[in-house]
């Protein structure tokens, strides 16, 4: 437990150091890159709540990420360019748009989860994948909001009326939100709710026999994870000032799963590490060859084979 806390502090310090190092090097791209890591880490942590802690392998988590992105992009588009959606003129205010993104993603998760969680195992993987692909094609077909080309935002959301212009401020916002998410998920996992979710992963029969309607607890976990992914999507759209259907694609869902497994599922911070290593490796390899996936794929397989507990398990084992 102490070691876990030590690594947590170390990771946090590393993230805090990034803007200063980037400043010293005069490298602004580094901040953008690190912001991406923070946002993907947030998705990975939420996905791990389902996969690692709940034993629910969702292959459609990108749907909630993409929905969150589209909510802020659509709201911003109407706010700046007129028009309305369901009679609402949109907003450019983060304090409204981001919670709304979470709400919409949570709502979608409630519907998708309610249907998917009636299945299990491979069927659950397939049905979550199918729902996400359905939403993906909805946005591809939605020509009013850019269809295939995606939807641009003219500027980032305002935060309580203030503009978030520089990359650093946005980075700090993302870091704070990630820290809050990790802290809340960490609490949840050791609260009554979390113990039920974890118990159900080990034995659904046992939990039912102890009086827990397992389905309801899993559904709530699914909704919470969806809401967090929605927030991350809102941040992602703000980072690139852009939302596109590929945010919801099965490739994205697969990438998030790889981050979780690479970092170490059911370890709270493993997915954060997984997201960092995934994105850094991806950009490094992509800089050298366009066929980077040919190298990246086998690397991930090797990692899965030789580090069954993921990077986090490896690091923790080493530091003992």
């Amino acid at each position: 437990m102490m070691r876990q806390r030590g690594l947590f502090v170390l990771l946090l310090l590393a993230f805090i150091a990034v803007p200063f190092i980037a400043g010293a090097l005069g490298n602004t791209y580094m901040i953008t890159m690190a912001t991406r890591v923070l946002i993907c880490a947030m998705v990975a942590v939420s996905l791990d709540l389902l996969v690692g802690w709940g034993g629910l392998v969702s292959f459609g988590h990108a749907a909630f990420f993409g929905l969150g992105g589209y909510v802020v992009a659509i709201a911003a588009t109407h706010a700046t360019q007129g028009g309305d959606i369901f009679g609402w003129g949109g907003t450019n205010e983060a304090l409204i748009a981001w919670p709304l993104a979470m709400l919409v993603s949570a709502g979608a998760a409630l519907v998708i989860g309610a249907l998917s969680l009636r299945t299990s195992g491979v069927y659950f993987i397939m049905i979550t994948l199918a729902f996400a692909q359905m939403l993906y094609f909805v946005f591809v077909a939605l020509k009013v909001y850019g269809g295939d080309d995606g939807l641009s935002m003219t500027s980032r959301n305002l935060l309580a009326g203030a503009r978030i212009t520089d990359a650093r401020s946005f980075y700090w916002i993302c870091l704070i939100l990630l820290a809050v998410v990790v802290a809340l998920v960490g609490r949840l996992l050791n609260a009554r709710f979390g113990l039920v979710l974890r118990g159900a992963k080990a034995s659904e029969r046992r939990m039912a026999a102890l009086g827990f309607p397992v389905y309801r607890y899993r559904l709530v976990a699914f909704v919470i994870a969806g809401a967090i992914a929605g927030l991350a999507g809102a941040l992602w759209a703000n980072l690139g000032r852009f939302a596109a259907p590929d945010m919801l694609s099965w490739l994205r869902s697969g990438e998030f799963l790889v981050m979780v497994i690479l970092g170490g599922s059911a370890s709270l911070l493993g997915p954060v590490l997984g997201a960092a290593v995934f994105l850094i490796l991806e950009t490094q390899l992509a800089a050298h060859t366009e066929h980077w996936q040919v190298i990246f794929g086998p690397l991930v397989v090797l990692a899965a084979l030789y580090m069954p507990m993921g990077l986090w398990g490896y690091v923790r084992g080493r530091s003992s």
Partner: peptide, 23 residues
């Protein structure tokens, strides 16, 4: 003990409690 506490938790109302450390 955690395992048995889970059983106690089962009969003591719903478990939609998200913050307090159950242990």
């Amino acid at each position: 003990l955690d395992n048995v506490a889970l059983a106690v938790q089962g009969r003591s109302g719903h478990s939609f409690q998200f913050v307090a450390d159950a242990r």
